[in-house]
């Protein structure tokens, strides 16, 4: 099996989130999903907020909610370097839910001219995207 196994490592500012030998990785590239198997051509790609799917050696899947960054494929190594990442089973659904609610509340005030100065809508939008992504991936994990 050693030849067909990939080593996947997911690195974030808060530490290494995932590190294991796996069968396949599906990455959320900015231009669409990318499936990576062993002996893939060396590759560097930008990643967007989305879901990184991991097929483990036993055939089961792990789902990782991942943020913005890049992935590098070299020989049998896949490095995913992103600003945040959480494995489905470990996502705090309550926290993600309240983050999404907070962001939505902020975005609701978009029409109101007084709020424009104090609320950073771009940031709220990004936060909402991240929170929704985490919720979506969390649901897949169960």
């Amino acid at each position: 099996m050693a030849e067909t196994a990939l080593h996947l490592e997911v690195v974030t500012p808060d530490g290494v989130v995932y590190s294991d030998h796996v069968a396949m990785v599906v990455l959320p590239g900015v231009a669409g999903e990318l499936g990576i198997l062993a002996r893939h051509q060396p590759l560097v790609t930008l990643l967007g907020i989305g879901e990184t799917r991991v097929k483990r050696l036993d055939g089961t899947y792990d789902y990782i909610a991942s943020g913005v960054g890049y992935a590098e494929v070299l020989f049998s190594m896949v490095m995913v370097v992103v600003d945040h990442a959480e494995v489905a089973g470990r996502i705090d659904v309550d926290r993600a839910g309240s983050a999404a609610r907070r962001a939505r509340d902020l975005l609701e005030r978009r029409g109101d001219p007084g709020a424009r100065a104090e609320v950073d809508f771009y940031r709220a939008e990004q936060a909402l995207k991240r929170a929704e992504n985490r919720l979506r991936v969390a649901r897949r994990g169960v």
Partner: peptide, 20 residues
């Protein structure tokens, strides 16, 4: 010095990663 496949091109990736 491997020939990496860049997706999109290196300049764009570089620019997008600069904020990081």
């Amino acid at each position: 010095h491997l020939s990496y496949l860049y997706e999109p091109d290196p300049t764009t990736i570089f620019e997008r990663l600069l904020p990081a």
